[in-house]
Amino acid sequence: MAGKGVRIAGGSARGVPLVEPRGVRLRPTSGLVREAVFNILGESVRGARVLDLYAGTGALGIEALSRGAAHATFLEGDAACVDAILQSLARAGFSAQGTVLRGRLPAALDRLEGTFDLVFMDPPYDDPAREEVLVRLSPLLAPGGRIVFEHGSRYNPPVRPRGLQLLDRRTYGDTAVAFYGHLEGE
């Protein structure tokens, strides 16, 4: 890609360029949106167990590691992207704190163990499985955890997918970000 490419926006690895896979069409989360999301999440990232779904370049999970997350698991279906994420983790100095799994969603969710404090979900905007994936995340979300679901601004995400509730939604041009947590009382 021409220009500066995707870089870590903040934290200990700020400015480190990420490896972008060749021959794969991606829509990485813009630096502006990433910065806004991490400003909203604030200190909740420190020490968090992170899950980065539809990981692509791994920008969201690696950004979380740079900002103090304890561990990030990346789930991506494309082999070239998996290789790029592994290279980017090494380049940023986070190889020991990252686990990269290859698999297609939603089926690959069955391979995950434990719970996560922070889940990033950035599917292709037209992915027909996005709501099924969202619904299946409730058991994987730790108490007090958050799901950050990036989507097209014209799409209205579900307000109460099974076991979850929409807490906030922000729009940045053609991109919107929905924040979910566990449904109160569950």
Rank of each mutant, 00 (worst) to 15 (best):
A2V: 13
A2S: 15
G5I: 09
R7P: 11
R7I: 13
I8A: 01
G10F: 10
G11V: 08
S12W: 09
A13T: 13
V19S: 00
E20S: 07
P21R: 04
P21K: 02
R22A: 15
V33I: 08
A36I: 10
F38T: 00
L41W: 00
E43V: 11
S44N: 12
V45C: 01
V45T: 01
L51R: 03
D52A: 05
L53Y: 12
L53Q: 10
G56Y: 07
T57M: 02
T57A: 04
G61V: 03
I62T: 08
I62G: 07
L65W: 00
G68N: 15
T73I: 06
L75Q: 03
E76Q: 05
A79H: 08
A79Y: 06
A80I: 05
A80K: 09
V82K: 01
V82D: 02
D83I: 02
S88E: 07
L89N: 12
L89Q: 14
G93C: 12
S95T: 14
Q97K: 06
G98Y: 01
G98Q: 05
T99P: 09
R104D: 12
P106D: 12
A107F: 12
A107N: 13
L109C: 09
L109Q: 07
F116P: 00
D117F: 07
V119W: 01
V119D: 00
P124I: 15
P124W: 15
Y125S: 13
D126K: 14
E131G: 09
L134S: 02
R136P: 03
P139A: 09
L141D: 05
A142P: 13
A142I: 10
P143E: 14
P143W: 14
G144K: 10
R146V: 10
F149W: 06
Y155D: 15
Y155N: 12
N156C: 09
N156I: 10
P157V: 09
P157S: 04
P157L: 04
R160G: 05
P161D: 06
R162M: 07
G163I: 12
G163V: 07
L164W: 05
L166H: 12
D168Q: 14
R170F: 01
D174W: 12
D174P: 13
T175W: 05
T175K: 08
A176I: 07
G181L: 03
G181F: 08
H182L: 14
E184G: 11
G185R: 10
G185C: 08
